[in-house]
Structures are given as structure tokens and as C-alpha cells.
């Protein structure tokens, strides 16, 4: 692309050389001009990155190395890794980290797997696929504040979900009001929103698989399950990786339903790192400790994302090596 355009731009300067103009300074002038405009055009974006992304990252790391006094009248003093050691020694915080990890280990593969199954169903030969697809996607359009409201009422002890369970002969469940079920209820709410959203990405990935592969599988008399595992999944690896990583990032910073519906309870059973960092910083106004919690959250999230890349990449290479 750039080579062809430089050939185009070389043509007039070649003509000028024949006319006697000196080409080298002219090209240099042009290059300098382009660099000037590149700097001018990139400046707003780079200033935005610097002030809105890099500055807060650095300030979080720096702030986490200081110890503040609640109330903030006296200035914080440098304390090295004291905040991190305090957190490490705090059982409630360790439980929060563990809870966040468990939540993500369960919810991300589960959401992606269900989204994949639904996507496969919606791309099979069925009547009015566009309609069903839209209906599954609609919850993703409802802002998470709205979905949290709907589900908090639906999951009330006297709500419609329990009414259905009772009608089917089951016993009413406490859902958000029970330490054993609150986190699972949050997962349900997040999945109602997430599955339709990720389904859209997977459907466009499924559509990109050439139909010859499926025809070949049919000739080989491969059943639907074998076709799914040996053709669909390997050829869908890139969209799957994208969806898994994006979903993980979204769920690590999940905040709205927890802040609105459970406030981390009951008995801390829905306190995860994002909400915890918010509460430490604002409710308990321990800014420095909160900064350390943000740093830990970010590091754990990045480790998760890196692991997922590793896992799916290695798989890819192994598959290529055997074929």
C-alpha cells in the first residue's frame, strides 16, 4: 500500500529532476511537512492518553506506596509496600480476591459456552432466525442499571421467578437475600445481558467459516457433535478468544448490579475487587489502600487475559503441528 503510493509520489519528483530542480531537499521538505502534521494531528489523542490513561495509572501505583490518614488532613507518608502487606494479611481482602477469581473462572467460560451454543442454533436451518436472534440480543440493549432493577424485582422472595418455581412444584428461593445464592444471582443478571451480546460476535464468526468444511464433514459422515468439535470450534478460535478476553475484562470490573442490589452483601458474599476498591476509597475514604486494591485488581485481570491468550494460542500451534 505505502509502496505503491511512494511510487506515485516519486513520479513528479523524477520529472522535476529532468527539469533541473534539486529533488533531495524537496523530498526532505515534504517528509518534514508530513511529520509536522502527524505531530499536530496526533497531539489531541496523545494528550488524552497521557492525561486520562497514563497519569491515573502512575498515580495509582505511586499512591499505593504511601500511607494516608483517614480524613486527609495530614499528608500521606511514603511507606513502600506496607499497603500491599496489610492487604495480604487481611483475611477479608484475601477472600475478596478469591471470590473475584472464582466468579470469573465460572462466569466467563459459562457465558461464552452458552453464547456459542445459542449462536450455533441461530445459524442452523430454522424458521425466522433473524427474529429469534434479535429477541436474544435485546437484553444487551437495556442498560445495566435497567436490567439490575428488573431482576432485583423479579428475584424478590415474592417475585415472579419464585412464583414460577412454586407453580412448577419447587420451594421459593431467597436469591439476592441469601449469602449462598446472591453471587449466583449476580451471575444470572450479568449473563442475561452478556449472552446475547457475545452471541452476535460469534454468529459473525460462524458465518465466516467457508461452507466447504461442512460439506467435507458431511461426506465423511461426521455427526453434528463431531463436526462441532472438529470443525466449528477450531475454525472459530479467533472470535472465541476475542469474546472470552472481552468478557473477562468486563466481568472483572463488574460494578453496577453489586452496588445497586447487594452493596457487597449479604455477609460480603458479593463483595468483589472492583466494588471493594470503590468502597475502600469512597465509603471508608482510605485512598492509598484503595489505590493498592486497584493495582492488584489490574494485575490479576492482566494475568487472566495473558493466560487466555496463551491457552488458545498454544492450542492453535499444537493443532497445526499435528495436522
Amino acid at each position: 500500500m505505502s509502496r505503491s503510493s511512494s511510487a506515485v509520489s516519486a513520479a513528479p519528483s523524477g520529472a522535476q529532476r529532468r527539469l533541473g530542480a534539486s529533488p533531495a531537499p524537496r523530498r526532505q521538505l515534504r517528509r518534514r511537512k508530513e511529520l509536522f502534521w502527524a505531530v499536530v494531528f496526533l497531539a489531541p489523542a496523545l494528550v488524552a492518553i497521557g492525561s486520562l490513561r497514563i497519569a491515573p495509572t502512575i498515580s495509582a501505583v505511586v499512591s499505593s506506596l504511601y500511607s494516608g490518614f483517614p480524613g486527609g488532613v495530614r499528608p500521606p507518608v511514603f511507606s513502600g509496600f506496607d499497603n500491599y502487606l496489610d492487604l495480604w494479611g487481611n483475611e477479608a481482602f484475601r477472600e475478596t480476591v478469591l471470590r473475584t477469581v472464582v466468579f470469573n473462572v465460572i462466569i466467563n467460560p459459562l457465558q461464552v459456552a452458552i453464547a456459542l451454543l445459542v449462536a450455533v442454533l441461530m445459524t442452523r436451518r430454522i424458521a425466522a432466525p433473524g427474529l429469534w436472534r434479535t429477541l436474544v440480543f435485546i437484553p444487551a440493549v437495556v442498560p445495566i442499571v435497567g436490567s439490575s432493577i428488573v431482576w432485583s424485582i423479579a428475584l424478590r422472595p415474592d417475585g415472579p421467578v419464585n412464583a414460577i418455581i412454586t407453580a412448577l412444584g419447587g420451594r421459593p428461593q431467597p436469591f439476592l437475600t441469601s449469602p449462598d445464592q446472591a453471587l449466583a444471582s449476580i451471575m444470572l443478571i450479568a449473563s442475561w445481558i452478556g449472552i446475547g451480546y457475545w452471541m452476535i460476535f460469534l454468529i459473525s464468526g460462524l458465518r465466516a467459516i467457508p461452507s466447504e468444511y461442512y460439506e467435507a464433514a458431511k461426506l465423511d459422515r461426521a455427526g453434528p457433535i463431531r463436526t462441532f468439535f472438529q470443525i466449528t470450534i477450531p475454525l472459530l478460535k479467533r472470535p472465541l478468544l476475542f469474546v472470552l478476553v472481552a468478557d473477562t475484562v468486563a466481568n472483572f470490573v463488574l460494578f453496577v448490579p453489586i452496588q445497586m442490589l447487594t452493596n457487597g452483601g449479604p455477609q460480603n458474599s458479593t463483595t468483589m475487587q472492583m466494588f471493594n476498591a470503590y468502597r475502600t476509597t469512597y465509603t471508608y475514604s482510605s485512598k492509598n489502600l484503595g489505590a493498592a486494591e486497584v493495582v492488584i485488581l489490574t494485575i490479576i485481570m492482566l494475568v487472566f487475559v495473558a493466560l487466555q491468550f496463551r491457552l488458545l494460542r498454544d492450542d492453535d500451534r499444537a493443532a497445526k503441528g499435528t495436522s
Binding site: A45, I49, R53, I54, S59, V249, F255, A291, V294
Partner: peptide, 19 residues
């Protein structure tokens, strides 16, 4: 540019709000 904007905003929202 692309990578720095892909870091989830929520993670830095708390320190940014203090800035």
C-alpha cells in the same frame, strides 16, 4: 494508541477521579 485505550476504563476510573 489502540492498546492504551483498550485497558478497561473502570480499572483506572477511581484514581482518575482523584486527579
Amino acid at each position: 494508541v489502540v492498546i492504551s485505550f483498550m485497558v478497561p476504563f473502570e480499572a483506572i476510573a477511581i484514581p482518575l477521579s482523584q486527579l
